[in-house]
Every structure is written in structure tokens, then in C-alpha cells.
Design a protein around this nucleic acid. Structure first.
Length: 421
RNA sequence: GGAAGGGUCGCAUAGUGGUCGAGUGCACCGGUCUUGAAAACCGGAACCCAGUUUUACUGGGUCGCGAGUUCGAACCUCGCCCCUUCCGCCA
């Protein structure tokens, strides 16, 4: 959500942002409603002020004077009621429109509409050259009895899977290694509710607009989260934090659920695109300062890179173009990790900064050093997501005989096992 | 799921229709006093919206949320949410 004052003063900037992000929102209508609202507000507040003054007098009055003023009060109340009704309608419409207004993308974002327009920021490591014909993670997983998608689909439909045996242990090892890495850097781990109310989905910017991507438990009006970001960023909603307690560095771990609507027929083989996965997510809540936000962005991007480097997986970092950015994002980088079976880099991480977009929706504030109350800035980045990360791990570490070496840093998390056979 | 009790400015509480413009205690911030601290005393302090002459002032709103009764609601009525205790069920 943007500050209404900002929209009033910069309508063209807002319209341009909506165009770049391909979001349909009638800014002129919004400003017209805003104007109407303020006019009505003035009228109803004048009436309320008169009523308040009269209320003080009434107990002191008697007889005719009193009858007269009571009559006047009745009239005022009737007028007030109809104005309030009108105001309520306009306010509802205004708030609805406001929820669609996008955050202004940073100047640094490459313009464009799809992956072709991403800008390469950096690459790390070299795609591996095998001296044998490498297998893909599915073939390896079936051979080593680590993955069973056939039965996953049998009981849960397409894009579902079982992990088994070393598959389970490998996933848990990666998650625990990542959580430990973050804990050492002062991140507080969170295990979160995966079913949340609408306000958390709206607060983090997923609703309205993302309803088709979320599983919905209608009976209880709850939604399955697609990322622990939703719960962790909402953790301090409606609170006023203190500047000296910022930044908050949080690490959420949770199962994540995505309907993958509109991706029919895309990435159907293997563990790349599935309905349920596990993720360790970094969430930052910091003071409202652009330089501080940038610093935090670099920090959480660096943390994710550090995990990939520890796993010795080649990757690259790309800047996402405006047309592919979310409504609330100011700037976004993806990390793509080399996946031999795809013969390309595949998205494994997504790092976003929001400035105060989410904080405004969540009513998440802090008192600054001068004692002024301000909206916080928020950011988040994947630290690791499984099973997608299992694709490069299994494929990069495979041997000619179909066994898989366990990355060195994960061995302590696998009871010292060095090789999956 | 059933029964009872409860939700007031950080915490604890007072408040049963107008003087609540929400009192008191603790905690907090500033000051006086003190070598310093404590104590004592004095003062201050929430949040949201609108407007203006914009480091300030004025008006409006906020006692879990929403509606109703009334000239007027923290207070009365109804609905909802949440918490506590007991019973039932249960990983």
C-alpha cells in the first residue's frame, strides 16, 4: 500500500508504475473518491462538533430551551447518519482500489516483460562437465529409492511426490544446515502457522490478486501459505517497535503450498514445480531508510549465496524486470542454480525489498530515534527451498555408478554418511 | 462441542447514561534535590483521520469488533471475535 498523500501528489508516477508492472488500477477514480471522502468528512465532522458542544449544554438546560435544542439534536443525528452511510460506501470503494495500487519499482529494475529482459548481475562457479552421461534427479531418485512421484500423484494428484529414505534425510540435512547458518548470523528461527487468515495474505500483498495461487480452506476462512514470509512478516502486525530493536532478522521454516494455477503442462517432470515444498525463508524488518533497506538486501542475498557456495553449487544472480515483479516489490533479484538435467540455470531463490509497502498494510511501525512513529521497511529472501534444491544437489554430486556423494557440509547432518548408495 | 467468568491508555486496576476532556498504582521520559544513585517532589507522556498560519495548533474518532436504543453510550440491548477455568474429545 502506498501513502494516499504520495498518490495525490504523484499520480503520474503511480500510473507509470502500474503500467510497468501490468497492473490495472484506476488512479483517477481513486483520487476522485479521495476528494469526495474528504469533503464528506468535513461535513460530518462539523455536525459532530456541533453535537458535542450541545451535549455539554443539555444537562444544564430546562423547559423550552431544552426542548428546542433536543429537536435540533435529532435533526443533526439524522443528517449525520445519512452522511456516515455515504462516507462508509466511498471509504470501502477507496480502500479496495488502494489495495491494487503497486509499489513504485526502483530505477535499477530493468524494464521489460519476461525472462529475456532479466539483467545478469553475477555468476559464481562453473557448470560441471561430466566424463559420463549424467542422469537426471528423477532417474537417480528412483534408482536409489529416494523419490516416488508415481505414488505421490496416485494419492494427491499431479505435482505431488513422496521423499523416502536418503531423500528425507538429505532434505532435512539441507534445511538444518541452512537454519544453523542463519542462526549463527543472529537470525531468530520461526516455525509458523501454515493456515492464516485473510489479513495476513492481504498484509503481505498476496491478496487481492493472488487468490488463484493459494489453497483456501473455505469452511474456516483460512488460507494455506505459499511461504513463511506471510506469517513471519505479519508477526509484528499492529505493533509499534523501537528503532534500537531493529533490524529484526528472522528465519521462517515451513511447508509451502502453491496451486500452480496456469502452469498446466509446464515443468511436469520431477521435483521442479510441485504443490508442496519446504523452505527456510529470511525476513527482515528494518527502519524506514533506503540505504538501510539496501544494506539488508545485500545481507540476505549474501546469506543465500553463502549456502550455495558451501554446497559448491554454481549459480547466477539476475535482476528481475519490471513486468515480472510483484505488486509490492521495489526491487527483486533471483538466484538461479545450475541444473544439469535442464542444461540451464533454474530459479531457486527470490530476494525482494518492499520499503514500507507491506508495513503499511500490516500496520507495522516503529518509534524512531526522534520519537516519531514510522512504518518499517520489510524484505525477504529464500535461504533454501526443497525439493527444488535437491535437483542440483543430486545431479551435481552424482557418480558414474549412479550413487550420489553427500556434500561435505551436509555430512554432519547425515550421521556422517558420505555417499548415498 | 457444553458450562461459567472476563476483555478499559505498556502492566495492574477504578469506572452501571451527561461533571470520562477516562481516575489511581507500577513502569516510562524530563526536571528539582544529590558527589553519584535511590527516595521524595514537580511536570510530561497513546494512537488514527482531516484541516490550517505545519518542529505547532484546531476539529473529529478510538474503552476487543460491529450494529442498535438515546438528544447523549466505556456504561443499556443484540451479534461476532478473543482469553481464562471446568467438562467432553484428542496428536
Amino acid at each position: 500500500m502506498l501513502d494516499l498523500k504520495f498518490i495525490r501528489e504523484n499520480p503520474d508516477v503511480v500510473k507509470r508504475a502500474a503500467e510497468l508492472k501490468k497492473i490495472k488500477v484506476d488512479v483517477d477514480k481513486l483520487l476522485e473518491l479521495d476528494k469526495q471522502k474528504r469533503e464528506l468528512l468535513k461535513q460530518t465532522e462539523d455536525i459532530k462538533a456541533e453535537k458535542n458542544r450541545a451535549s455539554e449544554q443539555i444537562p444544564k438546560l430546562h423547559g423550552e430551551n431544552k426542548e428546542e435544542i433536543l429537536k435540533r439534536m435529532k435533526e443533526l443525528t439524522a443528517k449525520e447518519k445519512s452522511l456516515d452511510e455515504e462516507l462508509k460506501q466511498i471509504d470501502e470503494e477507496l480502500n479496495h482500489l488502494l489495495l491494487w495500487v503497486p509499489q513504485i519499482p526502483s530505477e535499477k529494475c530493468p524494464p521489460g516483460n519476461d525472462e529475456k529482459d532479466y539483467k545478469l548481475i553475477k555468476t559464481w562457479g562453473e557448470p560441471k562437465k561430466f566424463d559420463f552421461e549424467p542422469l537426471d534427479h528423477m532417474t537417480l531418485g528412483e534408482k536409489l529409492d529416494m523419490i516416488d512421484t508415481e505414488r505421490g500423484v496416485k494419492i494427491a494428484g499431479s505435482r505431488n511426490y513422496f521423499l523416502k529414505n536418503a531423500g528425507v534425510r538429505l532434505e532435512m540435512a539441507i534445511l538444518m544446515f541452512t537454519l544453523d547458518t542463519l542462526a549463527k548470523k543472529g537470525f531468530t528461527p520461526f516455525s509458523v502457522p501454515v493456515l492464516v487468515e485473510d489479513k495476513a495474505m492481504i498484509g503481505t500483498g498476496y491478496f487481492p490478486g493472488g487468490e488463484e495461487q493459494a489453497y483456501r480452506i473455505d469452511k474456516d476462512k483460512l488460507n494455506l501459505i505459499g511461504t513463511s514470509e506471510v506469517a513471519v512478516t505479519s508477526y509484528h502486525a499492529d505493533e509499534i517497535l523501537t528503532e534500537k530493536d531493529l533490524p529484526k532478522k528472522y528465519a521462517g521454516i515451513s511447508p509451502c503450498f502453491r496451486r500452480e494455477a496456469g502452469t498446466y503442462g509446464k515443468d511436469t517432470r520431477g521435483l521442479y514445480r510441485v504443490h508442496q515444498f519446504q523452505k527456510v525463508e529470511q525476513v527482515i524488518i528494518c527502519k524506514a531508510d533506503v540505504a538501510e533497506s539496501q544494506k539488508m538486501f545485500d545481507l540476505i542475498l549474501g546469506n543465500a549465496e553463502e549456502v550455495l557456495q558451501a554446497l559448491e553449487l554454481p549459480y547466477r544472480v539476475v535482476a528481475i524486470c519490471t513486468g515480472e515483479m510483484g505488486q509490492g516489490q521495489v526491487y527483486k533479484n533471483d538466484i538461479e542454480t545450475w541444473m544439469p538435467s535442464r542444461k540451464s540455470y533454474g530459479e531457486t531463490h527470490s530476494c525482494s525489498m518492499f520499503y514500507d509497502f507491506q508495513a503499511r498494510r500490516l500496520n507495522l511501525r516503529y518509534k524512531d530515534a526522534q520519537g516519531k512513529t514510522q512504518f518499517c521497511h520489510t524484505l525477504n529472501n529464500t535461504c533454501v527451498a526443497s525439493p527444488r534444491i535437491l535437483i542440483p544437489v543430486m545431479e551435481m554430486y552424482q557418480n558414474a555408478d549412479g550413487t550420489i556423494n553427500v556434500p561435505k557440509v551436509l555430512q554432519p547432518y547425515m550421521n556422517g554418511v558420505k555417499k548415498i548408495i
